[in-house]
Design a protein around this nucleic acid. Structure first.
Lengths: 395, 395
DNA sequence: AAAGTAAATGAATCAGTAA
DNA sequence: GTTACTGATTCATTTACTT
């Protein structure tokens, strides 16, 4: 497969291309009104580009001219994926529909992610928009499937369904009232909301180019909207993520950028593609989440903590400026081991005090009553109730 | 709090309103080019409305006229939340910005949900858009917080950070190299992507009105963008979900709809406090509010009991063939009164024993330690924690 | 006991925002 | 502009466990 990189303005470069593309992915500047800068990990090289226009109209004209040449470089049924954010998504769509027509619009894809946050009066931006349009109904779309939601009823997967006389969906049955089995189901059709981790600041995949997109996002775009051997076009290729994704998926690709540094970087990336396989994406965020019994802390304003064996939660307010730690006993855990770990944690994290909530009764725990003022063992009501009922047995 | 419902076109009704609103939530027809119909569960009543305009311009003019009167009915810093889908979100935003100004635009909120799917060539639509605009910078925004992601590590929550000489963020330490504690952490600011379950076809909440929105969604809108006692306006109120949410959250509300059937339905929904009350409990589960106090009984197999002042739950197994009763202290309730009531209940219901879980500390409760073997007072861990921290203060 | 592997957790960084 | 904060993530290192 070929990866072609060209330096220059796509406005003049795209018309010179020899082959028609199946897919164009555009990730132009977002009209943030600033300058995007980023430095490589070693601090040696600095990449940047300007995202400044005098007026919105000027910006939109810039985009429109380039969209027109891109359309000409696409196959008849070629797809465009236009990547933008809340600042310009509405204008971009009007522009795109003016060129591809209202019927050319196929979907508004929401790329959502969790990212480092900050204090803000208002809602934290956590999504960007990908607009999909196609030149005709001959577009390529490789159907993909998500897993079923964990709440999905087995019967829905196994039983055939039909409609009753009021046109409501019901389970189908044969003449004897026996249920009818359903064929194999591939999964849920992929939705237009994509939860893909944002390219983490620490990811190896990062090359120091500003606004770099994750390969995981581009792989999905390339895979859905083109076939193997097709040509993929990225007129604002930046550090070349699209070309990396295309190369990995056996597509030919053309990347164009005005910055010679960006093109050089993209060339080197394509030559030795680095993909950080995201653990979060593979396992899902919930895999980190313990099935917790924080209900035992009801009535306290606590923040749950997940990646630590000694601590389940911390008090939101703290106490006199120092943290207060919590750990709820889980079945099979001895108070002794929890006590040791908690004591270490209190000292290491410079906490005021650590609490262990005892949930499984044993005589052991009494031993720790006056062990150290830094770790306190408190009993869950369930324990007191059980002990009290046991006393009643004896009486 | 007041809930006012009016039949008619909001274009003429809104200008007659006496009071200014803090928030207007608009959920107009989506320009689907069809007729929206839905039937109640029993099949008796059929609700419908027309969503047919000849041209897009005609539709947009219809919306624009109504937006203009709505703006006049809002306080200076009032917020509009305009609910739409991918069909019209771009046009709606252009329209809204033409009235409220580019700087009036505050956020593009994505409501995402999982919904049962039919196979389709393309991506499953799984989101709708809520556009937030405000008339000035005096808008109401009640900051809300999400929980931290399970991948977040404790140190970031507990340790203060600073910047080194190269302006990189590092953990702060005192002169001795000891880590410094960080202050209060409320959680992560709420993001602009809201994952709220779509109103399930089988949900009790469903009243058979087409395009009915979940109370959980409207509760969040009302809570974020208005204060208690404010007026909330819904010019296309349909089955009245906005008014239900407003009533639950102590806001006054005006709902308007052209359909007399819709208005009648909305009136009945708002007027039945019993239904709404049970919904509050459901709401608490997936909203970010305080949880049910039966969590204090975590670890015990109990059956909740409603409609009884003395009893909150009973032990599922009982004890030696007799019932065991539970009551969790609620804020403002004295242990004395609960004790009296519980004693009566234990005798009347011929129970083995009754437990009162103390959740708010007072010296009172000690008096009841040996009062009667039939009623036992046990402490929630939160109490022990609070007492322990108070002791630390003294030391 | 030493060596090798898996799991736990500490460190670093940013198309972040606010004052 | 400059300074002060943010937390989700992956990378890197330490600790725990097995052979």
């Amino acid at each position: 497969m070929l990866s072609i990189l060209k330096t220059g303005d796509c406005l003049s470069v795209v018309p010179q291309l020899q082959q028609k593309s199946r897919l164009a992915y555009l990730d132009p500047p977002f009209f943030t009104g600033g300058r995007q800068e980023s430095t490589t990990r070693d601090g040696k090289k600095k990449y940047s580009y300007d995202d400044r226009w005098n007026t919105l109209d000027e910006y939109l004209e810039f985009i429109q001219e380039r969209l027109l040449v891109v359309k000409k470089a696409l196959h008849d049924g070629g797809s465009v994926i236009y990547h933008c954010d809340w600042r310009t998504s509405h204008h971009a769509r009007v522009l795109l529909e003016s060129i591809w027509g209202r019927e050319g619009f196929k979907a508004e894809i929401i790329w959502t992610y969790k990212r480092w946050s900050n204090s803000k009066r208002g809602l934290m931006p956590a999504h960007q928009t990908l607009l999909w349009l196609a030149g005709s109904e001959d577009y390529v779309f490789n159907q993909a499937f998500d897993e079923y939601s964990p709440t999905t009823n087995v019967d829905q997967l196994l039983q055939l369904r039909t409609r009753d006389d009021r046109n409501k969906s019901v389970y189908a049955a044969d003449a004897n009232g026996e249920i009818l089995p359903n064929g194999k189901k591939p999964g849920v059709p992929l939705s237009d909301v994509w939860d893909i981790p944002y390219l983490n600041p620490k990811a190896k995949e990062r090359v120091g180019y500003p606004t770099q997109k994750p390969v995981a996002l581009l792989s999905r775009v390339v895979e859905l909207f083109s076939n193997e051997g097709d040509w993929v076009l990225d007129p604002f290729c930046g550090s070349g993520t699209t070309l990396v994704a295309a190369a990995l998926l056996n597509r030919n690709a053309v990347g164009i950028d005005t910055s010679p540094e960006a093109v050089a970087l993209a060339k080197s990336r394509v030559a030795s593609p680095e993909v950080s396989h995201s653990r979060v994406l593979e396992l899902g965020r919930d895999s980190y989440r313990r099935k917790d019994n924080l209900e035992h802390l009801a009535g306290l304003d606590v923040t749950p903590v997940y990646r630590n064996r000694a601590i389940d939660a911390v008090l939101q307010e703290g106490h006199l400026g120092l943290p207060v730690l919590f750990r709820v006993q889980r079945p099979g855990e001895s108070i002794a081991e929890l006590h040791t770990r908690m004591l270490a944690a209190v000292q290491k994290k410079r906490a005021r005090v650590g609490f262990i909530v005892e949930t499984c009764w044993s005589t052991q725990s009494e031993m720790f009553l006056n062990e150290s003022p830094l770790v306190q063992v408190v009993k869950a009501p369930a324990i007191e109730v059980t002990r009290c009922l046991e006393k009643l047995d004896v009486a």
